[in-house]
C-alpha cells in the first residue's frame, strides 16, 4: 500500500494521546485499523497524523459489572467477543453478531469500539448498539463523558467526538429481565458489506417483552433506529400479530438504495423477513423455557 505521507505517533498513556490529538489538526486514532488503513491505502482518507492507541494499557477488556452493566474496551477485538462465553451469557444479540462481522482476518485485528466510531451505515456493531440503546464513553482534556449511541453518530462516517476526544469503551445498560435477541445479515459473500442486516435486542419477563430495540444495517445513510417497530413489541408475548407489525414497521422505516446488491424493495423485504425470523427464534426459545 502506498498512502499519502503521514505522521505516526504511538503514545503509551491516554493523556499523551489526547495531547497529541489536541495539538494536531487532521489526526485520526488507530485501533484495529481495519477500515482506516484500507481507506488510507486507496487515499480516500489521508490523515496528517495517526495516533496509534495499541500501546495504551487498560483498554483491552470486556465484561459485566456487578450490576449487569456491560463494558467493551477500545482495544477489544471482534475475535475476543466471538470466542467469549461471558458475552454469550450476558448479551445474546452481540454474541450472535460477532461471528458475522467481516471475515476472520478482520475480526482478529478490528475492534468493537473502532467499528462504532467508524460510523459506517454498514457497521454491524452500530446496529447492535442502537438496538441495545448503548452508549460510548469518551475522554478528552476535561475528563469523561457518556454519549448515547443514538446521538453519537452525526452522519455517515461522522461522530460527535471532539477532535481531542478518544472513545474508550462501549457501554450497555443491564437488562430489565432476561436479555434475548439476535442478529441476521444477508451478504453476498463472507466479508461483503451487508445487503441488509437486522439487530434485535429484547428484555423478556415471564414471556413478555419489557424492553425492545431494533437497529438496521445497510438500509440507510446511517444506521437505522427502528424505534416504532421495537415499540410495537413491548408488552407483547411475541405473538404472530406483534411480529408482523414489527416486521412491517421496520421495513417501512428502512431507506435503502437500489444498487448492485439488490433493489430497495428487495432490501426492505429482507428487513421484514429477518425481523420475523429473529423474533420467531426468540419466541420458540421462550416456549421451550416455559
Amino acid at each position: 500500500m502506498y498512502p499519502s505521507r503521514f505522521q505516526y505517533e504511538a503514545p503509551t498513556t491516554l493523556a499523551e494521546a489526547i495531547a497529541i490529538l489536541a495539538a494536531n489538526d487532521d489526526a485520526k486514532v488507530l485501533a484495529g485499523g481495519q477500515s482506516l488503513i484500507p481507506m488510507m491505502k486507496l487515499r480516500f482518507a489521508s490523515p496528517a497524523t495517526l495516533v496509534d492507541i495499541n500501546n495504551i494499557p487498560g483498554l483491552d477488556f470486556h465484561g459485566a459489572d456487578a450490576d449487569g452493566t456491560y463494558r467493551i474496551g477500545a482495544l477489544c477485538r471482534h475475535a475476543h467477543l466471538e470466542k467469549s462465553t461471558t458475552l454469550a451469557e450476558h448479551q445474546p444479540l452481540l454474541a450472535s453478531c460477532a461471528p458475522l462481522v467481516a471475515d476472520p482476518i478482520v475480526r482478529t485485528r478490528g475492534t468493537f469500539v473502532g467499528s462504532v466510531c467508524h460510523a459506517d451505515p454498514q457497521g454491524d456493531w452500530a446496529s447492535c448498539m442502537v438496538a441495545l440503546d448503548g452508549s460510548i464513553t469518551a475522554v478528552g482534556p476535561n475528563g469523561k463523558r457518556s454519549i448515547p449511541v443514538k446521538e453519537f453518530v452525526a452522519g455517515p462516517f461522522t461522530t460527535v467526538l471532539a477532535k481531542d476526544e478518544i472513545a474508550i469503551e462501549g457501554v450497555i445498560a443491564p437488562a430489565k429481565g432476561t436479555r434475548a435477541g439476535g442478529y441476521l445479515k444477508l451478504e453476498r459473500r463472507v466479508g461483503d458489506f451487508a445487503t441488509a442486516g437486522v439487530a434485535i435486542a429484547l428484555d423478556m419477563s415471564g414471556g413478555v417483552v419489557t424492553n425492545a430495540g431494533i437497529g438496521l444495517t445497510g438500509v440507510g445513510a446511517q444506521t437505522v433506529d427502528a424505534a416504532d417497530a421495537a415499540a410495537a413489541l413491548i408488552g407483547s408475548s411475541l405473538d404472530p400479530d406483534a411480529i408482523e407489525q414489527a416486521a412491517t414497521l421496520a421495513a417501512e422505516v428502512s431507506k435503502p438504495r437500489s444498487d448492485h446488491r439488490g433493489s430497495a424493495s428487495y432490501k426492505r423485504h429482507i428487513v421484514s423477513t429477518f425481523v420475523t425470523r429473529i423474533l420467531g427464534n426468540v419466541q420458540r426459545a421462550e416456549m421451550q423455557v416455559a
Binding site: R188, R189, V190
Partner: peptide, 16 residues
Amino acid sequence: CVGSNYMDYLLPTAWE
C-alpha cells in the same frame, strides 16, 4: 465500473 475492488468483485472464500 462496479467491481473495481475485492469488496465489489467477489472471490469466494472457503466459507461459501
